[in-house]
Amino acid sequence: MAVKKVFTKPASMTDKTMHFCPGCTHGIIQRLVAEVIDELGIREDTIAVGPVGCAVFCYDYWDVDFQQASHGRAPAVATGVKRVHPDKVVFSLQGDGDIAAIGTTEIVHAAARGEQISCLFVNNSIYGMTGGQMAPTTIVGQKTTTTPDGRDSSRAGYPVKLTEMLAVLDGVTYSARVSVHSPANVVKAKKVIKKAFEIQMKGEGFAIVEILSTCPTNWGLSPVDSIKWLEDNVLPYFPIGEFKTPGEVSS
């Protein structure tokens, strides 16, 4: 009988304790990306681009070269990086406000150009860092500090399904939504993130991966209840799945 470590912190992750609130599933996403970097053996060939928002410190936890972009512009910064270093793996990570509100232009056009980058999009349906305001992905009826009676679609419109929107662009090779609210989904999410990176490494083009995540603090729920809330409210509106895979031609 030998004792084997079957689960440990990925090597591409630093030792720093993450700043995320207790139970915020963003930490799982940080770890999955590091695991993918380890498994693909690309730590020394990766350049990451980070957002403004709750993930603004994500560079503290990945031991890779990193550029900190301004709010919403990570895909433009990543474009600049990738054009200079076409042989490196370039990925961006953004939250919902960053990518689907202020940075809509940048993500749409990076996608339309078919930039050889992997864009990760963490959707927790709220502005976390600024204290819980309505996000472009806030669910209709969801209470936030700027929709105190719940998001009213007659005044505040509807959540943006960015990942589906991008799937119709010819420049997009891969478009998928995953979630990290259960062990099975965490395993699936990692596979999809890995696929996005592999698509870039094979030179097959642009990939967007949306990852549903929780925000216990600003949802006003316990971490465990947040998981349940995500299942009951977010998943029905933002279904998990692949919207476009390599080889598909959009009609």
Binding site: K9, P183, V186
Partner: peptide, 22 residues
């Protein structure tokens, strides 16, 4: 049993898991 489901869900990478293997 060392199934590691706890570690999979830990947002803070606070759990390491070992398993005895033959």
């Amino acid at each position: 049993k060392g199934c590691a489901l706890c570690a999979l869900m830990c947002p803070d990478v606070a759990i390491e898991v070992e398993r005895e293997e033959k």
